[in-house]
Design a protein around this nucleic acid. Structure first.
Lengths: 140, 140
DNA sequence: AATAAATTTGTAATGAATACAACATGATAA
DNA sequence: TTATCATGTTGTATTCATTACAAATTTATT
């Protein structure tokens, strides 16, 4: 998804977040980026254009965003958190070889039996791990 | 599941792991424990009975076990890894209030559409977050 | 018993994430 | 405009889970 700066601002305001320069830049980046970046990756990309950017700001901003569910926190990687600007229902597949995280569509969102009938469900995550086709080919 | 020491030994040998005293103790603990403990929790429980136990040993052993899939790694908690001796297919629900992790049955294991038809899938995880019934009651 | 191999231990190092105080920016009122 | 206050940003220090690694211990083998 590629929104204009103006659209991103409106989107943030809709969630009661002041659209500061940095916040707009970080959200725009996440919406255009498909590779589920880590804080480090986001920082290293954006610091090129915004030399004064601090890594703490990236952390603060992502926590702010995930708090109002406009970004998705992915904990499929055991050592560092990844982020996804696509908050629609979908699963994540992590290749254990090349570490790439792929999106995949899921048939239905209602996995659970009635074990959770009296639970309030706020968030659902589906994580797969294995080997992606590229790495399967390279093995041969 | 509550296996005898002898049964646990056989179970480990079946996976080509030498059943040392510590390994048997850690696996027995995980099989009897239903609360998806962290390394810290396992260590603090077992060090009571085995004063010479080192936390590094717990880490080493759990990595060994997860490598041969006799324990399940749960990364639903963002700061620390949890472990589950129950490797059957089931989902995990984490209460955002009391941090308890509940098990729940899932209807079917085949969530994915054919997006992943050429992927080799080794592991599937389903994580839910929300509020558990106990904490919902306490709010009132 | 002697030697080799595997296991365990404890400390040091790594690195992601947070705490926090100083600083900068933006909004509001006189 | 200028002063005042609130909000956002920065950078450094700290925390803490996890790993690296070498020494010490235990177990297996000749």
């Amino acid at each position: 998804m590629n929104l204009s700066t103006e659209e991103v601002k409106v989107y943030l305001l809709k969630h009661n977040i002041k659209p500061s320069y940095h916040r707009v830049a970080i959200l725009k980046h996440l919406l255009s980026e498909k590779n589920h970046p880590s804080v480090d990756k986001i920082y290293n990309e954006l610091v090129k254009e915004m030399p004064t950017l601090s890594k703490t700001t990236v952390y603060n901003t992502l926590n702010l965003f995930s708090g109002v569910s406009i970004v998705r926190v992915i904990t499929i990687e055991e050592n560092e958190t990844r982020y996804d600007g696509d908050v629609s229902d979908h699963g994540h597949f992590k290749c254990e070889k090349c570490k790439t995280i792929y999106d995949f569509q899921i048939k239905s969102v209602d996995f659970e039996t009635d074990d959770l009938s009296s639970f309030k469900i706020n968030e659902k995550s589906v994580y797969y791990k294995g080997i992606c086709p590229k790495c399967l080919d390279n093995k041969k």
